[in-house]
Amino acid sequence: MKNAAGKDMFSKLVYERPKTLLDRRLHYCPGCHHGTIHKIIAETIDELGQRENTVGIAPVGCAVLLYDYMDLDILEAPHGRAPALATGIRRALPDRVVFTYQGDGDLASIGMSEIIHAANRGENITVVFVNNTTYGMTGGQMAPTTMLGQKTTTSPYGRDFRTEGYPIRMAELLAGLEGVAYSARVTVSSPAHIRKAKEAVRKGFEMQLKGMRMGLSIIEILSTCPTNWGMKPLDAQKRVLGEMADYFPLGVFKEKKQADFE
């Protein structure tokens, strides 16, 4: 079939599954943003040409099967210990690109000391932090990032700041540490936000490629958990852009420049 200009129509493949993402069915629930986040990481690694050079660290959480989905070397860390594992790999193999993929229960709760100290040491790793305000895999318990008033299986009357404290803003917390090179909060709840998130993930990976110890880069991605929130995927996306984005403001909180090291 030819178009008006005489060219073959529909001959150019504009979009397909990135090569780093293996051709397998993802086990995530319908509308879960893990798939979108896997896709943007895979696209970034493809674009940077680092597929043979990247080591990923899978968390404990829904993304525990990351090694089944990505055509990369991926190790499985004990709960919350991904930054410690990444530190070792990065120091033993300094030419590799190392990233960790962690959820909020993993990074902000049990793994809090690992991430704080890895950030404070300025380890040259990229941390992709998926914040969906709940422990998704274990059945929707309250996480440190759970919103005030949010009902979970362990806070059936809603989170109350008098007994459970306030949700932690990790991107801002880590941006305050000297060892952090890049800290941003993004979301993947609309096409425009997906592109911004991809830009942030790319910057996070580039911090490792510049050949200098720029420090740790963290990209917090506000994500949905339609199953445990008890919402339809589209309503869950609206919650992320409304209630969650109000408490967890989107943006870049810190970005070190190469000139800072010269």
Binding site: F10, S11, K12, L13, V14, Y15, E16, R17, P18, L21, R25, L26, Y28, G31, C32, H33, H34, G35, T36, K39, P191, I194, R195
Partner: peptide
């Protein structure tokens, strides 16, 4: 129009786009 926005949005990467 082959803008590929649907494919970028799909969490399960099950859309391919040609233009």
């Amino acid at each position: 129009v082959g803008c590929a926005i649907c494919a970028e949005t799909c969490p399960d990467a099950c859309i391919r786009v040609w233009r």
